[in-house]
Structures are given as structure tokens and as C-alpha cells.
Write a protein that binds this DNA or RNA. Structure first.
Lengths: 232, 232
DNA sequence: ATTTTTATTTGCGCCAGCGCAAAGACAGGC
DNA sequence: GCCTGTCTTTGCGCTGGCGCAAATAAAAAT
């Protein structure tokens, strides 16, 4: 699939860029396909590119020295990733980017990116703004992890995912997610087993329906109540 | 104490600004003293100012709906705070800023700040860079909270604090911190009691010495081992 | 259709960490 | 020097959540 300059308008950071700028960006980037299960980059790699996902789905995760990992974020088309590394000179990626399905991304060279940022204050400004939202989200999740119980965190994670992904399915109150128990565990700082037990419990209560790598939210409102700690 | 333009050079984001810019910034900001225990702003307040601490010490914290709180960061002179709110239009502060001692800060109006950022790409760029470091730190702490045990997190927090604050005391291997058990608990997502038990234990082993709101690190290397999970 | 692989469930035992409560230690004010 | 308020310690009991292990289920491969 050929990417057109106008497509890049969907990227939040480029929404105020001129068509000429967008053309220039396209000219200075390469298309990089990665098949399901493959990696765009690993935590600690020298950060040479900033990526913009054009198709597929990518998981950003971070591992500790023992190999345990947490999910930081899932990337959908026209979102950026790898920005943290690529923006700074001589930096390394702080996370690993894994393709959850066959995916394609536009890779913008960090040298060119620096030049672009230097000469286009508007883009710097918009990128900075995007970063402030990341920081806020991370702070909120950090607080959640520190103060909320597992139940609440899992309920919250489902709701957050539904808000992001659920746009695609249009049913009124029913939202379908495709994540494994392990995925949810890594998003919420708990274990596969605990997530499974919770989901089974909620299914018995009719709040959700589950399947292999599938969670269907039937009563979002009940999840909200759980996430607010009103249950129990 | 009168703040001079040259003083602002100590602020990382302004290190590349010209003297004229610094003068302009000073002219468009006001000095705001807050006494110990007071607040510069509360989470949810309309974000009108970006602050630069000129003296004292400020704690940034976030509370959940039940009032439980976590410490996000401690601010020392010539560091910025309130940036997340002030950078975006019509935003609110995502955290609360409390003075740990009598403190004074320079308050830069967000309207002026926006104008400044629009016309000074270099400052935008430097600020964005600072934000990338925040994001990385938050991600690392998030991962730590999700995957590490309390012991490791507390050891790590002490080391991190020592790296930040310890600069002031020059003794070779001995670093003194002034934080209460409660403070440390809020930084690491645990409880006052657990922190107290851990510190008592480490004191028995000669790794640290403790007092009321005082922790002296005697053997940093042992803390590193604990934080790496090599103990036990 | 059969086999293999991968995801999920659930019983069971266990322990890290929580949190109350009560006592002790320290610092500052008067 | 004593009082008061705040911070800290520690015993005790409890439980939320972990994690092994084994069974089951669903998809993928052959």
C-alpha cells in the first residue's frame, strides 16, 4: 500500500504540518514491514528511527533484568512509537516494540527528525503536547498500581482498552476485546492466574463473556463500579 | 532574594536561551513564596502558571478518589514544576505541589509561556527533551512497581534519592537523606509499617543508620544488591 | 482426523505484605 | 523541664494474591 502525504494528517503530531512538510517527511523515511511476532526494535537498541504505524498492531513493553515484562501501551495505525529514543541524540529505546499482527510502519530517520524539529517549531510543540499526555497517563497508571487493588486495576484496564479499541465495534453496550489473560496481567501488574480467576468470576456474574484471547464486555457499568472500588 | 537573569541558566530548559530571553521571562513572571506545609497548587486546579523553584523543597503528589496518595517526585531549586498543566491550553494540574519547607518559586504565566514556546523553537525542543526523560523515569518506576518486590523497590528508592540529593553531602560512602517512613512508603507504593520494618532490619545489618525523618546510607553497595534482587 | 501447540481454568498451599493497636522515642514550644 | 504532637517500632493476626501442577479447551499444523 502506497502512503500518501495526506495520510500523514492522521498522525496527531503532523496535523498542523504543511503538505510540503509531509512530502519531505515521506521522502526521508522508509517503509518497514514486520511480520506477526517480530520486533521493530528492542529495549536498549540504538534508537535510529521514529516509527509511525501504518497497518497492524504493535505492543510496547519493558522488561526487567529477570525477564519479567510489563505492557506499556498498544499502538494502532497512525500512532507514533519509538519517539522517546529517536528524539534525543544518541539515545536507546527504553522499550521493546513487538508486532502483534503483520504490521507495517514508516521509519523516519532520527537525523532527519532532529533537523525537522529544529526548523519546525510547530511540530516540536505538538510533539511536546503529545508527550505531556503520555506523562499524565503514566502517572495515573503508576498511582493506580500503587494504591488500587488488583480487581480495580483489571476492571480499569478493560475499560481503558474498550475506550481505545472499542471504537471499531459499534454495538451499543457490547464491546469486544482481543487480549489474552497474560496480556491483561502484564498491563495490570498481576498474574495470569489472578486475571483468569477474576474474569471467570465476572463471567459467572454476567458482566462479561470470555473466550480464548477474547473478552466481551456486556455491562460496562458494572466494571466501572468495580474499578471505583464500590464492590465489596 | 533577587533573581537575576543569569540564575535562570541553571534551569535545564533555559540553558540555551539568550540573556534577552531570560530577561523577558523574568519580567513576565512573579515571585511566589509558600511557607512550609502550604501548597503551590492542587491536583485539578486550573493550570495558570509554570513554576521554577528558587529556594526550598517541593513535593509533587497525586491522590486517588479515596485520598490515598503517591509521591511522584521531589523538586529542588532550579527545577521546573507544573509544566504538564501549563504547557497545554486550558488544562488542569495533574498533581498537587506541596512545600516541604518554606519555599519560593518563580511563576511564569501560561499565556506568556505559550507565546514563548511558539517563538522559541529551541526552548520547545529542550522542554520536549526534558519530558522524554520524565516519561522514561515514570515507565521505569511503573515497571518496578509491577514486577519488583517491596524490598527491592525501597532499596531502589533510597538509591535514587541519594543520587538526587546526595550531591549536597560530600562524604565518600555515607549519604544522608531526610525523609519520613511515610514519605518512602508513598514513593514505593507500600505502607509506613513495611518500610519501618525493612529499615529496622537493614539498620541491624549495618547497611543504614536511621533516625526520625533521617536515613543515612552506610553501605550503598548492599542496597544495590538488594535492589537487584540478589538477596534471599 | 489426528496430533501438537498454545491458552485457560481451578484446586491447593503458602507467604509477603497489610494494618490495627499500643508502646516507645524524639523534637519543639512554652 | 515538662507537655504535646508527631514519628517510629513491633507484636499479632489475617488475607489478597501468587504460583505450581494438572486438567481441559481451543486453535493450528500435519
Amino acid at each position: 500500500m502506497k502512503i500518501m502525504p495526506a495520510d500523514l494528517k492522521q498522525v496527531i503530531v503532523f496535523q498542523n504540518a504543511t503538505d510540503d512538510d509531509l512530502k519531505l517527511i515521506l521522502k526521508n523515511s522508509i517503509t518497514r514491514p514486520i511480520e506477526e511476532g517480530g520486533f521493530f526494535f528492542f529495549q536498549g537498541d540504538h534508537a535510529q528511527y521514529l516509527y509511525i504505524l501504518t497497518s497492524g498492531q504493535v505492543k510496547l513493553m519493558q522488561s526487567n533484568p529477570n525477564g519479567q515484562q510489563v505492557n506499556l501501551r498498544t499502538i494502532y495505525p497512525w500512532q507514533m512509537f519509538g519517539a522517546l529514543g529517536a528524539v534525543r541524540e544518541e539515545a536507546t529505546y527504553p522499550a521493546t516494540a513487538k508486532a502483534l499482527e503483520d504490521s507495517t510502519a514508516l521509519a523516519i530517520d532520527s537525523g532527519f527528525l532532529h533537523e525537522m524539529l529544529r526548523t519546525h517549531p510547530q511540530i516540536s510543540f505538538d510533539l511536546m503536547n503529545l508527550m505531556t499526555t503520555y506523562i499524565q497517563e503514566m502517572q495515573a497508571r503508576y498511582r493506580e498500581l500503587a494504591t488500587e487493588r488488583v480487581e480495580q486495576r483489571v476492571a480499569n484496564a478493560l475499560l481503558r482498552l474498550a475506550a481505545q479499541v472499542g471504537i471499531r465495534s459499534e454495538k451499543e453496550t457490547v464491546i469486544e476485546l482481543s487480549f489474552s489473560r497474560q496480556d491483561v496481567a502484564e498491563m495490570t501488574g498481576t498474574t495470569l492466574y489472578t486475571v483468569s480467576r477474576l474474569l471467570s468470576d465476572w463471567e459467572r456474574k454476567g458482566i462479561i463473556e470470555t473466550g480464548r484471547e477474547r473478552i466481551k464486555i456486556i455491562k460496562p457499568h458494572d466494571l466501572v463500579r468495580i474499578s471505583d472500588g464500590m464492590e465489596k
